[in-house]
Structure formats: C-alpha cells, structure tokens
Design a protein around this nucleic acid. Sequence first.
DNA 1: CAACTTGTGGAGCGATCGCTCCCATACTAG
DNA 2: CTAGTATGGGAGCGATCGCTCCACAAGTTG
Lengths: 201, 201
Amino acid sequence: MARPRQFDEKNAVTSATELFWRRGYHATSVRDLGDELKLTPSSLYRTFTDKHTLFLRALDHYRATESAQARQRLDAADRPVREVLREWMLWLVTCPADGMSGRGCFVVNTATELGTADEKVRQRTEAAFEVTRQALRSVLAKGRDRGELSTDLDIDDAVELLFTTVLGLRVRERVGHDIEPLTTAIDLAIRVLGPAPTEPA
Amino acid sequence: MARPRQFDEKNAVTSATELFWRRGYHATSVRDLGDELKLTPSSLYRTFTDKHTLFLRALDHYRATESAQARQRLDAADRPVREVLREWMLWLVTCPADGMSGRGCFVVNTATELGTADEKVRQRTEAAFEVTRQALRSVLAKGRDRGELSTDLDIDDAVELLFTTVLGLRVRERVGHDIEPLTTAIDLAIRVLGPAPTEPA
DNA sequence: CAACTTGTGGAGCGATCGCTCCCATACTAG
DNA sequence: CTAGTATGGGAGCGATCGCTCCACAAGTTG
C-alpha cells in the first residue's frame, strides 16, 4: 500500500557498512551516509531509526556477509588443515584488498574504537569473535580426527593463539603492512600445530 | 618574562593522552580536553596550536612513556629469553590494567581508528611498531647468542609472529578478554621458538 | 612606579552535528 | 475518480563542533 520505496534497503545497508568500515563510527556523519546511500535524512531516519541503529545494522550485515564468507571458506575446504588455515589467513589479509586495502576488519576496527562502552556493539563484536574461534576449533578438530594433528596438541590452546594472530593480522592489514611479513607470521603460527604424526600403520 | 603559566604543560599532555587513549581521536572533543586539563580554550590553543597537534603530542608522549617502558622491560631483563618474553607479554595485557583495564594500546587504537589516512599519525604509529619489532629482535638475538635458542630458528620470522601476536593481545585486552586465554596464547606463541638446544659440551 | 609582555577567562564565531517536521508526491484500495 | 497512506525532498531545529578574539590579570623589565 501507499508509495513504494525508491531505494533498496539492502543496498543502503551495504553502502553504510562500507562507509562505517573505512571511517569508523564517530568519523562518519549522518550527512555522509545520506550522500553515499542517496537517502534524504527523512528516509534515512524513517527506515533506520537513527545513526546508532544503522550502525548496528551495518555490523550485522558485515557479520552476515564478510564474516560468514570467512567462516564458510574455513569450514568448507576439504584439504589438509595446515593448507586450509594458511590459505584462509592469507585470504583474510588479501581479499579485503580487492583494490580496497587498508580497511582491516570492520569488527576489529569497531571493537578498538568503541571498546566496551557500547553494550550492544560489544555483544556483536564478541559474538563475531566467538564465531571465529568456533570455526578454528572445528577445523582443528577435523584435522585431529583425520590424523593430521598430534593428539598431544591441545586444540583449545591452539585456537587461542591462532585467533589472537588473526586479530594482529587484521590490524596490520589495516595499517598497510606488506603481505610478506604477514605471510611469515602466518606460516610460523601454523607451525605451533606441530609436525604431522607419522602414520603408525 | 611576563606572566607565567598557571598549569604544567607535561601534566596537560599526560591528561590529554589518557583521554585520547580511552575515547579515541574523533570521540574526544576540545571541550572535553579543556575540562580534563583544566585549560580554557585560549590557553589550550595558544599552547598546543590545535586539536590535531595536541593529539600528535599525546602520541609522542605515549611513546616516550608507555612504549619506552615496555621497551625497557624487554631489554633490561637479564634472564632466560622465554621467561622474559612471557612476563613481558603478560605485563602488556595486565599492567595497563592498574584499575585501568580495557584501554588497550593507544598506538593500536589510533592505528585502527585513523588507518593510513593521516600521514603524520601513520609515521608515528609505524615508528612505534618498528621499535617493538626491533626490541623483540634484539631479545631473540641475545637468547640465540646465549645458546638458549636453536640456530635453526630464523629470528626475523619469529619477530613477525611475536609482533603480530602482541597486536592481537592488545586488541583482546581492549575488548576485555580474560587473562587466562591470553596467557594460553602467549605460552603457545613462545613455543614457536622451539626447544632449548641441548648443551653440546 | 610605568611600560611591556604574556597568560587567562569567556563570549561567541561559522560550521557541522544528529535529528525532526512538514508538505508535495506517488502509490494502493475502494 | 476519491480517500487513505507511506515516501522523498528539504528547510531548519537546538546542540555541539573546532576555533578565535579581546578585555583583563599577572607577571618581568627599566
């Protein structure tokens, strides 16, 4: 009923996500958003309530697209754990750079900018982090079940290091560090998984 | 000559640093700074030129105090490398929490908030990062010279992982992660240094 | 002391902030 | 068609932004 929208809400959220991602929450003004999304203030506020709510929508959108894609890439691969992990981590610090380098991870940027002050934001960033840890956990478990990892390896411990490394990598991508040293860090991080057990068959 | 200042410039910079550290650049207003430093706008601008210049002063102050202290703690210790590294990394995610947890690292927060957009800021954050890498390098070199590390270990490679891990740890401290998982990550990161070479004497 | 120099306090500048309101517009329902 | 409803466009709200200006205060110098 009544007049239909002249804009696509999903496209708008996508644009908002890119803007917040690049500039952060405080440095992005409602007018910037209006220009980018091609929305007048009235439409923007009618649709998204306010800036903060739109930001939460952007965070959710990021998790549903970028984060979900990352999770998929990690889960789906049916190849040796070490290779999967290596390529996944390389992708994390490369793919965001489809001509779009230096953006880092929206979740990490948000988490450091807003800290723990904003509870709704905190819940979302923490949930995103937990998803990543869980994905790492299941990949390592798969590797162990396949006999690629020593049973001596404590998976939860390894997850903590890999996860922490990923956060560091995201920061380094954000500040424009070259891929080579990042690759070095990745290769070394994977080495903590220890050598592949020799087949006892 | 003429009327002397009623405030201490160093104290003012210290207060400004704490404010910028907690809230970030964009979320800290000049009025916030004025209230905290007990400076009227006129004194603030006469002394520090403008907000951006004061922010650079704050960054420099942080590097000269917090960062320098971190570097010292790493260099000074005359004990086994692994112990030194472990305690240093633990201190990094604990000490900032003298009742002041969740602040993370001012340099990391700044680097992710402002990215590479602000050249003067970028130079400073990058220089701070390089200092940390260099400190790690010299500690590892010392350990190798003492025979605590295998000569097979590529020190530059290890520096990349440890440095990346430190960035990740700083992010996790900022978002309020518990000390236990961080300790786990630290212990595992140190394990990439490999076992101590058995004395060939 | 007077003359000069520098710091302090505060009013207030223009610009921008997040946001609201109103009205013409453009659609659906009857 | 008319009546009803939600949108698009945009002026503009009060608040705050970074910052400036100026009269006055508090010192030093001769």
